[in-house]
Design a protein around this nucleic acid. Sequence first.
DNA 1: TTGAAAGCGCTAACAG
DNA 2: CTGTTAGCGCTTTCAA
Lengths: 326, 326
Amino acid sequence: MEDVAREAGVSRALVSLVMRDSPKVSPAKRTAVLESAAALGYSPNRLASRLASHRTHTLGVLFLDLHNSVFADIYDGLSAGLAGSGNQVMVAVGSADPRTEIEAVRSFVDLRVDGVILAGYTGTSEDLAAALRGTPCVVITRELEADGVDSVLTDDFRSGVLAVEHLVGLGHRRIAHVDISDWLPYTARREGYLHAMKEHGLAPQLVHSDMTERGGRAVMEQFLDSGAERPTAIFTHNDLTAIGVMEALTARRLSIPGDVAIVGCDNIEFAASPLIGLTSIYQHARELGQVAARAMLDRIAGTAGPATTRKLEPALMVRRSSDPAA
Amino acid sequence: MEDVAREAGVSRALVSLVMRDSPKVSPAKRTAVLESAAALGYSPNRLASRLASHRTHTLGVLFLDLHNSVFADIYDGLSAGLAGSGNQVMVAVGSADPRTEIEAVRSFVDLRVDGVILAGYTGTSEDLAAALRGTPCVVITRELEADGVDSVLTDDFRSGVLAVEHLVGLGHRRIAHVDISDWLPYTARREGYLHAMKEHGLAPQLVHSDMTERGGRAVMEQFLDSGAERPTAIFTHNDLTAIGVMEALTARRLSIPGDVAIVGCDNIEFAASPLIGLTSIYQHARELGQVAARAMLDRIAGTAGPATTRKLEPALMVRRSSDPAA
DNA sequence: TTGAAAGCGCTAACAG
DNA sequence: CTGTTAGCGCTTTCAA
């Protein structure tokens, strides 16, 4: 920078202003600086500028799992929502391991990111608040009680209800639910399921799995082998699980939806594929990302008040897996 | 840091050493420092430490597309390969847009990452070299001629050959190939296809698409409507495209592999799903990530010599889409 | 507009 | 082992 200043015959401060394209530089000096910068192959060290300016223009984003394309959708929404704001995104993957997640958040904070966006945080709000140290944060797909932390999610309880209503409407009475292991803080879909089942006077039937295709398949195979009475319909926590369940059923030569109807949740791309035809509850993943981005920008700009929760309405997408006519 | 030092009754330098857990600190002082750090809620500003130490312990990783799970596999390999090395990863997504890609690389370099790993770079090696300014780099899934840039990939030419040999072995003679638009620097699979077709004295038939499921589907629908002679087998550039092609065929009530056999490439998770049953060429995505991580660590450590290329052997995974018996 | 000076919060020798 | 002294490369007053 020193060199560029000398070469262009100006002061370092001026070079700094030009590099951040400040409006208060004369066009002549500006081009002079730009030219010598190009000539010397200079580009500013952003570490230094961040340190000095206390702004990083970077948002840390944590994803639960890159294998679930719902996070790719959220990513798309985030980058659309951030477009033109001059912020960049730094991604980390938590893998549903609270230790890894907190480590990632801490790392973001130590790097002084302007904000942290969590898409799939499975830890506690206390740990999060401690790691955050006041850094603005918005949580996607979950409602978290912590001050200064906004939540953006789809009404998961409602999703559970929607699924059951749909299946009951189709005449099903033995409807099972494959949720994700008890310990994960994503229970609203199950609550919705349980609530709706009760409303209809039906006996709930729960099976625990993780949130993967493989997990769903393994759990369902085990279930089918157990000799337990087979449900006529299954609602799963997410689409990956639903696909795993479908695989298990297919492997046992059971027809879908003839023998068992399936309803997933998330509405990932593959669910919509004619090859899969999975009925699913759309949670507007892309929009979640976009809304979260806006929320974060507001919070960084200081125009946001106390922590808010934004909840989107889920939508049922009927496909072959629950309705042969679809 | 000042405060912590005072509180613990030591110098700032000592605090610094403790924070980086250097071995040359007495246990007594160490715990004293740690305690007062905890008491004061201190954690080091890594921006500052990076600036001062000229090491960021961060690798910038660029992915082509988060919607293609092959990149999730590569990510897994990378993080496995980096585990324990004390490096963290910063992810960006290029979306097959050279401008976005170069912007991301430049951003990494301006942040002084220790190295850049590119999984799906579609630009030129000149642009890359310019953006890199000497930052160590390893490119995955592609062979790039630029000094100091290592390449880690699967032998794509061979993949094309494998696909054709497999189909020819099954008796097919009209074998089409859906590649990705001409301008993308990923032509080896097509070259392999063309070469093998020629070897067998067969006439190649090329269809251009992008690398997405939707693209594959659209292109194939258009192709089927065009009235062109239908091939009995199709080899696609990647699995996403293959799935799109399968969707188009299914929508036209054509059977797979009865009317048309399909072979994809990448061997993503869904290809292996019994619901899809797509024959594919395994490119060892996870291993690519792991090998790339090692290559990068070597390069950073300075133990790597001139630019090298590591090429893995692809493997044919036969499934239902090409062989009903499978 | 421009320039000089004073940091941002840490690390890196080196002397003790 | 510990403390001192310089920076890292930029931004920011603030005065000119």
